[in-house]
């Protein structure tokens, strides 16, 4: 369960680097990128991300735009919004657009991990259900 494939997106490099190290130390597969565009590019090249942790407030492409784009590319990927307090409304908007949850910066690492795990679980269950349905479909196929 701890081996979650995480993509961290935040323009605050110092924060992100340390967070990456700490999460890696806890056994996560973490990729860190510093902008929305990079995140989208990364998602295109590497298909196995399960959870994206996305900062709402970024220059150029902000969190909401990135979220919409991510969901368009791969609806099954779970996204957790990361926000300062002033942008709670944006985080709520994000959840309406399909984000899994939101976290307030600075966030407790344990909470972050818990949420990420939940999100990953959900995605796995989701994928399992899809596979199941697929199998059912296949098994029910008539020659």
């Amino acid at each position: 369960m701890n081996h979650i494939n995480l993509l961290l997106v935040d323009d605050e490099k110092a924060f992100l680097d340390t967070l990456t190290k700490r999460l890696e130390k806890r056994g996560m597969n973490v990729t860190a990128v510093y902008s929305g565009q990079d995140a989208l590019a990364e998602l295109k090249t590497q298909k196995n991300f399960e959870v994206v942790i996305l900062d709402v407030k970024m220059p150029q492409m902000d969190g909401i735009e990135t979220l919409v784009e991510i969901k368009r590319q791969d609806p099954l990927i779970e996204v957790i919004m990361l926000t300062g307090h002033a942008t709670v409304e944006t985080a709520i908007d994000g959840m309406k657009l399909g984000a899994f949850d939101y976290l307030m910066k600075p966030c407790d690492l344990d909470v972050l991990i818990a949420k990420a795990s939940e999100a990953a679980d959900k995605k796995r269950i989701h994928e399992d259900k899809i596979i199941e349905a697929r199998m059912k479909e296949i098994t029910n196929r008539r020659p």
Partner: peptide, 13 residues
């Protein structure tokens, strides 16, 4: 907020 977040992360690290 941001520097504090970084400081907490660094302490955690």
């Amino acid at each position: 907020n941001n520097p504090v977040a970084i400081m907490i992360e660094e302490a955690g690290w």
